[in-house]
Design a protein around this nucleic acid. Structure first.
Lengths: 225, 225
DNA sequence: ACCCTAACGCGAAATCGCTCGCGTTAGTGT
DNA sequence: ACACTAACGCGAGCGATTTCGCGTTAGGGT
């Protein structure tokens, strides 16, 4: 039988292979920044990078495959703060996410990958894995806060980090408005307040009863209406 | 000169035109529910609806155009509650959004439209307009709360409603996990707490200083660091 | 009840995206 | 330094999508 036949770029990843990869990904990024995902085609990428069309198809199968690879490249995008204070960390991270997505290129990349995920299964898993990993490590930020006793110990770190990211992606993908500093501030404030209120506990949120909320502590409401 | 030549379906919207439209949109919805956007093609829609392929292309140009039209159809999706209490309304609405997106069909539609928006300009504007309108009317919910004095008077209604929606779309499009009741509860709690904390004020959020938050009232912090 | 034409059905034709087979180039191991 | 072969360049070719021109059907106005 044939020995599994893995796709190009795997068995001999050095030298020329690496160069073409870099050239292609650069071209994709540039094209994406200029015209967005709509104007992105294998043809254009081939011309811009100087790499032959057939090679592109061989290694990446489709434009979707290309933007997926570009996403995995961008892993080292936003560094996680560690100031010793969770609310400070949240605010700082929100600002970094904000500035990260204020510029068009990364916005476009997210659009492209999400768009791809709806079309090819591979992009779906790449996207899911990417953010799953990122959420995992970002959760460390919250875990340190728990250890310091800043928030309820049963706070779900990933839920908090999801809440911190969500508004930005909502703005980019749904509301389709600009990401600005106000959004970052608002989000940081909101997430911190919500965390204190116990909205992100592991077994589901404990509802805030009535009006004024006893904000700290581990209040429990056993109503199950 | 030729008299502008508007696309089919505009000048004579009754009778047969309306029937084909209905048949086609039904087919799109069905196909979308079953196979998702990836499996959606003009060919399949034509077969399923019994409408000829050429007609589809004439009226809607592409699958993206079709899902756009389907979105505008789904306007009457989630009714807005009005219980007389903002936190109750928020929780109820969150639950409705939750159940709405728990089932696959609407999830798929959102995926499809967002995916389309990255590719054709028309979808971009359709999506933006749709959610802009929806945010506008949903904001009434918050405005009533302001009139009742439940939240700070300078609360931004649309910001609150964005915050209520964001986690669901994050879950669907980014985290790619299931939308469940927990998410709805968590979101409702979080948004209410954040609103009380003043995270969604019109001129940008007033940061929550320090640890315990004076939750009600209109505290002001003039620090601008 | 009649005409007018928008919208549709039909099949052929053109276009586009994508793949395939073969020769060439350049890493990599000995 | 040499051999081996992964990865690339090239252009023809295939299939699927999209369009076109024409005849037909059926609303809407008078």
């Amino acid at each position: 039988m044939t020995p599994a036949q893995q796709p190009p770029g795997e068995t001999r990843p050095g030298g020329r292979t690496a160069r073409t990869r870099a050239a292609v990904l650069d071209a994709v990024e540039a094209e994406l920044s200029e015209g967005g995902f709509a104007a992105l085609s294998m043809e254009r990428i081939a011309q811009r990078s100087g790499i032959h069309l057939a090679t592109l198809y061989r290694r990446w199968r489709s434009v979707e495959g290309l933007v997926c690879e570009l996403l995995t490249e961008a892993s080292t995008g936003i560094p996680l703060p560690d100031t010793g204070s969770l609310p400070e960390d949240l605010r700082l991270l929100a600002r970094r996410i904000g500035t990260f997505y204020t510029a068009a290129p990364m916005r476009r990349l997210v659009e492209a990958v999400v768009s791809s995920a709806a079309r090819i299964p591979r992009a779906d898993t790449v996207l899911a894995d990417f953010f799953h990993d990122r959420l995992q490590v970002a959760g460390g930020l919250v875990r340190r806060g728990i250890e310091r006793g800043e928030v309820p110990p049963d706070t779900d770190p990933e839920a908090v980090m999801s809440a911190l990211g969500a508004p930005f992606y909502y703005r980019i993908l749904i509301a389709r408005g600009p990401v600005d500093a106000d959004l970052a501030e608002s989000t940081a404030t909101a997430v911190w307040a919500a965390t204190l209120a116990g909205a992100y506990r592991v077994g589901g949120a404990t509802p805030v009863v009535g009006r004024a909320t006893p904000v700290v502590g581990r209040q429990r409401t056993d109503r199950t209406d």
